[in-house]
Design a protein around this nucleic acid. Sequence first.
DNA 1: TTGTGTTTTATTGCCTCC
DNA 2: GGAGGCAATAAAACACAA
Length: 275
Amino acid sequence: MESGRLFFNPSTCHSNMLFLGNSEPIFRGARTMHSMEENSKKRLFFSSPDDLYDEEYYDEQLPEKKRRLTSEQVYLLEKSFEAENKLEPERKSQLAKKLGLQPRQVAVWFQNRRARWKTKQLERDYDVLKSSLDSLQSNYDSILKENANLKSEVASLTEKLQAKDVATEAITGQKDEPLPAEVVSALQFSVKVEDRLSTGSVGSAVVDEDAPQLVDRGDSYFPCDEYPRCVGPINGVHSEEDDGSDDGRSYFSNVFTATEQEQQQEETLEWWVWS
DNA sequence: TTGTGTTTTATTGCCTCC
DNA sequence: GGAGGCAATAAAACACAA
């Protein structure tokens, strides 16, 4: 590390001093006093390494003003930062010598550069999270829409069933035979799944003991390949808005993993509804 | 030209590590 | 306790619109 931690810059010393009533400046801390003694005759910036030894410059140029680094200096510093954003003492000395700067300036530049990098990184992280959130929101909206479609489909099919019952009764004077037990069970399953979707309990840990156990580990949004027994699309069942562009798959069918029995119930229902 | 916002350079104080 | 890192901040330098 360089001998004195701080510089005394005559042009900016007011920010590092406290003034008493009689305008006598007092310096904040022993280190500042120390650095004043050590550095009051030093300039902070050099346009070339030779300037380091140009004593006339000191007399003519004081008080020194803050100067920006040249584009060449910045370029080399950037390159060095890219290679390694921390600065070992040896590299610092080498860089300082090469650039005609004081080692402290190189250290400060790296310090500030790390701060800028961190800020940028935070911005990038924010953007990534934001787009991830947007994507999740969009998926969620699609699921809601799909759910609404399925709901109206169920309602319509239920109406048809009731109409069929009434017609059969009118023609034959008899009531239809009761639905087979597996069909009733499949219908009940369908209603339960629908309820679950509509109440927004997809991600809930609350489980209906009677209902099939739906998979939701909470760590991702429906990664079907993680769930090898994901239920596939129900052939032949399309919502009214389904134009086939999604290959007949629905969010609904990809959301849950059902047991084989439940799949069987669905197939039975499908057969029964469309036969 | 000037007011204002942004970027860059530098300082200060505090913290951690060895 | 010294060396060095970081956050917060100051202030000069710069950019740019009015």
